[in-house]
């Protein structure tokens, strides 16, 4: 895909979201970017290059995380956008919404520890040929914050096998040296999976929060690479 100049970026605003401003702000730091929120009741997402589904607790996580957001009026247009090859990135609750609406396979279950985990973790970049990782090196280790109660990635064995065979795992939990091992897995996710993409590579979901680590004032800029990648 050609590099984006002056990218038009939309961040969906679901009731109960709480990372939509951070995500919009981080996006706005891209030179020439035009950023705006998309209301959950909008019938159309309009003309955009990238859509973010932000973190938070859409609809109070009623029933299951992301289960109700999936049926927001705007999601029909988001799904259409994704099916046409548009770039969609779901962060945390946004990742949960993407699995609920089947844009990504699998599901996010309650953390193995049953605790809400809010801390910095490390992830390893497993592929750098999708829109959100192009500026990063394969094998690079990022320190990113996580903040979730339901982040244990699960997929049935045959789905997991397909994901691995297709190289759809984009980021994996690891230690600070990039070793993928059980001790570095914060939530019990299968195969240390922190984020995956669809087969086409245009839809990407991850549990860590790159927007919370995207400028020096935040004390961590490791997440900026995800945003910077969008222009490469």
């Amino acid at each position: 895909m050609a590099a984006l100049k002056n990218p038009k970026i939309g961040v969906v605003l679901f009731p109960g979201a709480n990372c939509e401003r951070d995500t919009l702000h981080a996006s706005s730091l891209l030179p020439g970017a035009a950023v705006r929120h998309i209301w959950h009741k909008d019938a159309s997402v309009g003309n955009l290059d990238v859509i973010f589904l932000p973190g938070g607790f859409s609809y109070g996580d009623a029933l299951r995380c992301g289960a109700i957001a999936r049926f927001s009026p705007v999601m029909r247009s988001v799904i259409e956008f994704a099916e046409k090859g548009g770039i969609v990135i779901g962060i945390c609750n946004g990742f949960q919404v993407l699995t609920e609406c089947h844009l990504l396979p699998g599901a996010l279950l309650m953390n193995e520890s049953r605790k809400f985990i809010c801390k910095n973790i490390h992830v390893r970049i497993e592929r750098n040929d999708i829109a959100a990782t192009r500026a990063l090196n394969k094998g690079a280790v990022l320190k990113l914050p996580i903040a979730h109660g339901e982040g244990r990635y699960y997929a049935p064995p045959e789905t997991l096998q397909t994901l691995e065979a297709n190289g759809q795992v984009v980021v994996r939990y690891c230690d600070e040296n990039g070793n993928v091992m059980p001790e570095a897995n914060p939530n019990g996710a299968l195969n240390n999976i922190a984020g995956i993409c669809n087969a086409r590579g245009n839809v990407f979901g991850l549990m860590p929060h790159p927007e919370r680590a995207s400028e020096p004032i935040l004390g961590n800029t490791d997440g900026w690479g995800v945003f910077k990648s969008l222009m490469m």
Partner: peptide, 8 residues
Amino acid sequence: KLLSNPVM
């Protein structure tokens, strides 16, 4: 469609 997620 809604009350359960057949994946899990």
